[in-house]
């Protein structure tokens, strides 16, 4: 028996205070292009997940995957949006 299909998006970004050289470089480029009001850029990534929900606690399963694998809690925060 297959469960219903759920979708979730996970956003991962570096914690505040952790250096983001890529974001810094993008900000510098923006400034050189004349967009000097963009004072800070922080980069991150997102993951679109399709999940077969078969009764088990889907929230805790997503949480587990995020903290164990998709994000490194030492340097990154994550946010889950379920659709």
């Amino acid at each position: 028996m297959t469960g219903s299909l759920k979708k979730a998006t996970v956003y991962v970004k570096l914690k505040d205070g952790v250096l983001d050289p890529e974001g810094k470089t993008i900000q510098k480029a923006l400034s050189q292009m004349g967009y000097s009001e963009f004072l800070s850029v922080r980069t991150g990534r997102f993951f679109e997940l399709e999940i077969e929900a078969n009764g088990s606690d889907i929230d805790s399963r997503i949480d587990e995957v995020c903290s164990k694998f998709l994000a490194n809690p030492v340097i990154e925060n994550y946010k889950v949006e379920k659709q």
Binding site: L14, V18, L19, D20, P21, E22, T25, N72, V74, I75
Partner: peptide, 9 residues
Amino acid sequence: GALIRNDSI
């Protein structure tokens, strides 16, 4: 700790 992107990229 962790190993992140070189500060020079």
